[in-house]
């Protein structure tokens, strides 16, 4: 087990930030810690890294008890903070070399590692740039390069794509998958469900300081009673027609909001064909139509009764 957290409790005065938080990260996984802002993701990471005192619980990393002086454990950890943590007076190359030197004393070996990290982050042409000359996306990539240059076995990324443009975000996500393929185990926190959906092999959903559900993407979606969701623009549809659609087989819910009709199927079922046929057979004019499978937001909504997005 790379990380094992049991019954972790962390209080800030009256506020319980982590409420008997449990988590396991196995070797080779990309575990996504998904939750709205304030759900306790960063607090959990800071406790795992022994930066924060906690009130109760056990934390093991690489099957050893984690502590502030567990330098042998820290040697194999790479951390990418939520906020960019680099020296403004050092260039891209110097920053990466500085942080790498804290793990790798051998200069020659380090040079190779720094070059690899620069290539990995796509910062080759910016190696002599100072951080204030970099765009937000490049700065994030530098932040990542500083965290992973020493080739850690465990990489912890705390919301590394906040305030990053879509292109840079894709680069970062691809990089994380690449790191994982190179052998690193990844703990990834985010409140963007699409990211977690895209790259994580396992997901733990957090709310109010505890993991409320965990599993693979498919496992989580299969936990809830929803199947396909069809959204269609139907200007002027009659009440009878709405009731007709509701009467179709495997339909769990039909909602009309203005001209937009949302049809939700029962778990594991697809109704796109049946709905289309109904509309055509009854000469109901329709516009934009699309179908989607349940998302992690639906999972979060079903478990907590609130939208994940609303909390972002």
């Amino acid at each position: 087990m790379v990380i094992k957290v049991e019954n972790l409790v962390k209080r800030y005065g009256e506020l319980i930030a982590l409420d008997h938080f449990n988590m396991e990260l196995r070797e080779g996984e990309i575990l996504g810690l998904l939750g709205p802002n304030g759900s306790g993701k960063t607090t959990a990471i800071n406790c795992i890294l022994s930066l924060l005192k906690y009130d109760k619980g056990e934390i093991q990393v690489f099957d050893k008890k984690m502590s502030p002086v567990a330098y042998d454990i820290k040697q194999d950890i790479g951390i990418v903070m939520q906020n960019v943590a680099v020296f403004n007076e050092l260039t891209v190359y110097e920053n990466i070399d500085y942080f790498c030197s804290l793990y790798v004393p051998d200069k020659k070996k380090r040079q190779e590692m720094v070059e690899e990290a620069i290539a990995f982050a796509g910062l080759g042409e910016f190696r002599k740039f100072y951080p204030h000359k970099l765009s937000g996306g490049l700065l994030r990539r530098l932040n990542i390069a500083c965290g992973i240059a020493h080739k850690p076995k465990l990489v912890i990324l705390d919301e590394p794509t906040v305030a990053v443009d879509p292109q840079s975000r894709n680069n970062i996500l691809e990089g994380i998958v690449k790191l994982n393929k190179q052998g690193a185990t990844i703990l990834y926190t985010s409140h963007y469900m699409e990211e977690v959906d895209q790259i994580c092999t396992r997901i733990a959903i957090m709310d109010r300081g505890k993991v409320i559900s965990s599993g693979t993407n498919e496992e989580l979606k299969s936990m809830i009673g929803l199947g396909e969701k069809i959204t269609v623009d139907v200007p002027g549809i009659s009440r009878e027609a709405v009731e007709g659609i509701r009467a179709l087989p495997n339909i769990s819910k039909v909602e009309l909001s203005g001209n937009t009709l949302v049809v939700k199927s029962k778990k594991g079922r697809n109704n796109l064909g049946a709905v289309l046929h109904y509309l055509e057979d009854h000469n109901i004019a329709f516009g934009k139509l699309y179908s989607e499978l349940p998302t992690l937001n639906d999972v979060f909504l079903e478990i907590t009764g609130k939208e994940l997005r609303d909390n972002v």
Binding site: N46, L49, L51, P68, V69, Y71, D72, K74, Q75, I77, I79, M81, A85, F99, L102, Y103, C146, G147
Partner: peptide, 9 residues
Amino acid sequence: ARLNIVPAP
């Protein structure tokens, strides 16, 4: 915070 995670006192 980053410097507190390095493997050195």
